[in-house]
Design a protein around this nucleic acid. Sequence first.
DNA 1: GCAAAAGTGTTAGGTATACACCCATGC
DNA 2: GCATGGGTGTATACCTAACACTTTTGC
Lengths: 222, 222
Amino acid sequence: MNKAPIELRFAVVAVDVPVFALLDGVLHVLVSEVNKPPHYINMLAFLGGIIDESENTDEAATRILKEKGNLNSVYLEQLYTFSNVNRDKRNRVVSVAYIGLVKPEVAEAYKHSDARFVAVIKLPKLAYDHNEMLKTALARLQGKLSYTSIAQHLLPRTFTLTELQTVYETILQREFDKRNFRKKILTLDVLEETGEMQAGVKNRPAALYRFKSKQVLDLPLF
Amino acid sequence: MNKAPIELRFAVVAVDVPVFALLDGVLHVLVSEVNKPPHYINMLAFLGGIIDESENTDEAATRILKEKGNLNSVYLEQLYTFSNVNRDKRNRVVSVAYIGLVKPEVAEAYKHSDARFVAVIKLPKLAYDHNEMLKTALARLQGKLSYTSIAQHLLPRTFTLTELQTVYETILQREFDKRNFRKKILTLDVLEETGEMQAGVKNRPAALYRFKSKQVLDLPLF
DNA sequence: GCAAAAGTGTTAGGTATACACCCATGC
DNA sequence: GCATGGGTGTATACCTAACACTTTTGC
């Protein structure tokens, strides 16, 4: 493919991906060390990188999580594009940010040389404009949870209704009445019982459910 | 500012802006002629252009509407970033799309050499990926109308409740009961009466309202 | 038998929906 | 006085929110 005149190509296009996971009922996000003197010395940032000539930004996000974080099976959706002139002090980078969600068993097993899941409330000042990106991502996550079935990507394949409720309570930062929550979610008819029960818990075992559809559906929730 | 290595700068970053207006109760969008042989001959597309080194994409969108369409006072919000490798067949362009909204008096008075407002339902096949962009924009517009006070940017500064209802009915493509619509919108407490009435209409003149706040607020609507 | 979490129904208050007639103005 | 759109209230169904006790399991 032809290229546009060089003077129009002053910016690089990157993707950045805050990948969220719930670990022990606490929202975590994947960060890695950044050490790019003089501006970004020993700071944390989300995984990200520059897109290739042969891919769109969706594909770049998937590739970069794989290459830089050894992460597969991440649910991704585009978040927002950040383009302030000085958002990366080294040179002009326009970043198409994505939100990534992984199931807890993926995050629990995660081991990588420099990337790790850190509790969102414990994050320090991040590199680039990633604090702003985080704020945008959290707001979007709350919105999406409230009117779609996106919670399925933060839960194991099968889960208890209490686990599902905990996802909502953790991310929306409010509590729900157990009976009302169950009534609501069950009448939406998006879950089905697996027929299995929890095993090895030291209390009454709960019934396990799964989402009927792997699609993220629009739902009237909260 | 330093530049990244040239081999990473294969793409240009552009913005594209479908600008919507309601004219006589019909949704219109601003398009201009594109004539870029061999791929795009005498086609229509939304206003758009390449960002400058000194601006972010928000600023670029505002500037381009002014420069290429002589349009000011457009409400803008970022829509989505389109990055498919072949979305522009001439060379690699990553487009950060915005939605623009203008008040009917602006659209009615609009005169420009090649840009014009065309009814959305009458649009032909557009250049680039602008049909896909339109689809995304319309879906977003419906969503925003349903849970924010964005309608204010498609209405004159003062308006009747029937005009407001027509905005909702046109964009959401459903009808509302007049009494229930009024009750709902008035109990939300976002409107105030101007004290003025319509003049020169050949029926009973309606009371004129305005939005209390110029901010776009989140509201529980439909 | 005790600790821990699962599971389950009812009531009251508020919100959404459906529906029809009179009013003010221009011509 | 007629045509046009403006403006208003009520009754019903539905949904939401508040609330407490019994069950099952492991130890």
